[in-house]
Design a binder for these strands. Structure first.
Lengths: 228, 228
DNA sequence: CGCGGCTTTGATGTTCATCAAGTAAAGTGG
DNA sequence: CCACTTTACTTGATGAACATCAAAGCCGCG
């Protein structure tokens, strides 16, 4: 079930739009709407036209491509305050990946044309967006580079720390994704995800209770995530 | 040996600056200089301050990080008309990778401050740059995604086609990089790069004469680069 | 209840990195 | 210019890392 409503205050709180004048924010707010997607719902289908600039207010999304051979690949997760699709919105008319809510998610959509209008008048806004795009790209590229030089143990350590530090800010958290999805995110099979989580449990680095993971030995995990 | 000189016409020819008015181009040209780097020379050291927006007029560069364990990783190659460092220039004050000329290279450098000055006044220029940044990021991310799901044979096929189609526009070309560098670029060992090139030669997909590669069976290479 | 999807563990085979050893090419100093 | 060192290239043999296959338990859901 999706619901949609105009929202007048979102833009004032979103980091991306800091620096805009009140009249610009009011102008854009006219073209801004909020949509709630429940866990499991598709947010964007690969190939959809990109008509809005969207940012996540609350929740968690996965960006992925359904590849040819049935093996999905998750490109990245989007967390609150991320501008989903920011990387594509200025370069291509259509999404070339899909998005799916892995937690109930609140998304704010601003129509592209008015955004471009403001961009044309306000060059500083352009510089702000450039910085954001640039950082987002850097992050993904760096991420890929790190993961590709790690063995399986290192990758699992890396992703656990990522959840702990960047998403949940806690040493104990409920995994929002299945073992299979973790595999798709960091490039390994479901079986090996499980195997290595079990190893970490045996080595008393973490405890696992169904979907809940608690990290007990952060230091060791960090070491594994760097050189493992 | 590096040489440096003011250049007045570069900007008028660079795709990135199409759309700027003549007075803007003249203004920026005051802050533009050309530098030639000979094959093998460092262009940027990891950690250098980013003071200019640079684009490659002629030649070929490699962008790479020297990783901890001695295993270098090549992030990407830059070819003519690429804006090297465009991905970083708006988000970080320092390069976090190095650049090295793998062919004699002509680079044009425009000082960042004047560029930002023009950006502030001319929002459309911002949109143009956004599109470029976005495309560049997309390309690298897509590239990584493809490579990571391919076996070694697929990766070699992929990189050979990349050289052939995107850099040299010819089925016969001289490899600008060593076998070792190919390995660093697509994540495999030198020995396996060689082994698989030899396989392709045995299978009569290509011929190899020292550094010169000639592709005879594009179709098969293409098939291998997709599903191999 | 029974079905399908997620999880778990073990056994097996493939892919690939590592090691070793040798040839060719390219730079270096006398 | 030639011995000398170094660097790039090449091939084979071995072992480690990892995917695949198989089988079984678990849980939610119609």
């Amino acid at each position: 079930m999706e619901s949609s409503a105009l929202c007048t205050t979102c833009l004032y709180e979103a980091p991306l739009f800091q620096g805009l004048a009140n009249n610009e924010l009011d102008y854009l707010s006219q073209f801004t709407s909020e949509r709630i997607s429940k866990k499991g719902e598709m947010v964007v289908h690969e190939g959809d036209a990109i008509t809005h600039l969207s940012f996540l207010k609350k929740g968690l999304l996965k960006l992925y491509t359904g590849s040819n051979d049935g093996k999905g690949q998750i490109i990245s997760l989007a967390k609150p305050n991320d501008c989903v699709g920011l990387l594509s919105v200025f370069s291509t008319p259509n999404y070339h990946y899909s998005m799916n809510a892995i937690e109930d998610s609140w998304l704010c959509h601003v129509m592209m044309e008015p955004v471009k209008e403001v961009l044309r008048r306000n060059g500083d806004f352009g510089i702000t967006i450039l910085a954001r795009v640039s950082k987002a790209a850097d992050f993904i590229i760096q991420h890929n580079l790190e993961l590709s030089r790690l063995h399986l143990r290192g990758r699992i350590a890396y992703i656990l720390l990522d959840f702990s530090e960047n998403i949940y800010n806690s040493l104990s958290f409920e995994l929002p994704v299945s073992r299979k999805e973790i595999g798709e995110l960091i490039g390994m099979t479901t079986e090996n995800v499980i195997r290595i989580l079990s190893e970490f449990r045996r080595d008393e680095l973490i405890t696992i209770s169904n979907k809940t993971i608690t990290i007990w030995n952060v230091e060791m995990l960090r070491r594994i995530s760097k050189s493992g």
